[in-house]
Amino acid sequence: MAPKEKGNAPGGASMLVLALLKDQEMYGYQIIEELEKRSNNVFQMKEGTLYPLLHSMEKEGLVTGREGQSPAGRTRRYYRITSSGRRELEERERAWHVYASAVSAVLAGA
């Protein structure tokens, strides 16, 4: 099953990371940058959150990693989503939409 996260609300960090990896493989630093960019700086993930998340998702088989290098020769580990990762992402996205509409409905009043 999915890695445990603090709190039970849908839409957690692992869903966001899986969504980023849906179309292309990325390495850690790139994930942080891309998340910031796409969310207009709303989501600024710290390395201390990202790496344990990536490593545990790799252990669970939601993503797979491979060694690579930057053009300058720095070590990078590229992460790619797996088919079970895709299924997990779908489930989580569905849960998120249910949650988000429920919140909106409550805020909008009876």
Partner: peptide
């Protein structure tokens, strides 16, 4: 070893 290299690469890229 592997995690060390991954994190070291990350720090180096931030430094650059």
């Amino acid at each position: 070893e592997r995690v060390w290299q991954e994190l070291e690469g990350h720090i180096q890229e931030r430094m650059e």
